[in-house]
Simulated scan of single mutants.
Amino acid sequence: MTAPTIEILFQDEHILAINKPSGVLSIPDGGQSQAEHVRNLLEPRFGRLWTVHRLDRETSGVLLLARDLAAHHALNDQFASRNVKKEYRAIVSGTPDLDTWRIDLALLKNGDRSHRTIIDLEDGKPASTTVTVLERYPGGYSLLSVRPHTGYTHQIRAHLAACGLPILGDPLYQAKPHASMLDELQVAPVRRPVFADRLGLHAFTIQFTHPVSQVEMTLTAPYPADFSAVLLEVKTG
């Protein structure tokens, strides 16, 4: 099998930023020891790399790695203090009546089964996401800008499903509107089914402070071809 091509968005002696393809693991998975992950694809070219954050395997987009321990610690501190800002683009089933809204619903990891995060207002951790509609399409789909203010596993996927707006191509999170969102948001259903062979979620931008130069940086990951193909399908449907 041919190794996937990985686009380099930025590199210097301290950090590396890539446009991770959908289907590639951010970190090794103990249950899939032979599966390709970012470090084993890139370290032969760039040397030792340290993971700073992760994206779901099915999610594409901007991923930041450190090239030395000092940069790793500095970037970890920025993520821990929530000083890193991220924007995702999501293709969802349904068209909401609001143009922008905020989701404040607590999340519980591995809530009802392994590897699935659920809404749990009693035992979950506070989680917040801001959503803005970029485009609405005639077939009943929408393109959203999504900005998570916290960073929990599957946060965007669980929060959008709780709005009745599941991400296209997501087999794990189907529309399950939460009662609190039903009072706030009305969603028109899909009128023409579209098949997607990948998750319609892409990490579009990341904003952070360079760990050495202290320069404020914003990096953008262009849509990959498979994401653009899904977007074209829902636009023209």
Score class of each variant (00 low, 15 high):
S60Q: 02
A106T: 05
Y152V: 11
I118W: 12
A106H: 06
D56P: 02
L49N: 08
L55R: 05
Y141K: 04
D97Q: 03
H159M: 04
S114D: 13
T150A: 03
F79N: 06
T130E: 15
K109I: 14
R82K: 13
D112C: 12
D99L: 11
R113F: 01
W101V: 01
G111K: 04
D68C: 11
V84A: 01
L144P: 02
S33R: 15
T132L: 10
V146W: 02
V146M: 02
D123G: 12
D104W: 04
R57P: 06
S33V: 13
R113C: 07
I91G: 09
D68K: 04
I103S: 01
T129I: 00
F79C: 08
D77K: 15
Q32L: 07
T117A: 10
V146P: 04
T153S: 12
F79I: 02
L65P: 12
V133M: 01
L69V: 13
H37K: 02
Q34F: 13
G111P: 01
R147T: 13
H154G: 04
P138C: 09
S81Q: 15
A90T: 02
H53A: 03
G61P: 10
P148T: 06
A71W: 02
I118D: 01
Q155W: 03
P138Q: 13
A66L: 09
A66F: 07
G151R: 08
L134V: 13
V92F: 09
V146L: 01
A80G: 12
D97F: 10
L144E: 05
R102M: 13
L49M: 13
R89L: 10
A106K: 12
D68A: 04
V146F: 08
P148Y: 03
Y152F: 14
V92Q: 10
V92P: 06
D112A: 14
P44M: 06
T153E: 12
G140L: 00
N76Q: 15
N76W: 13
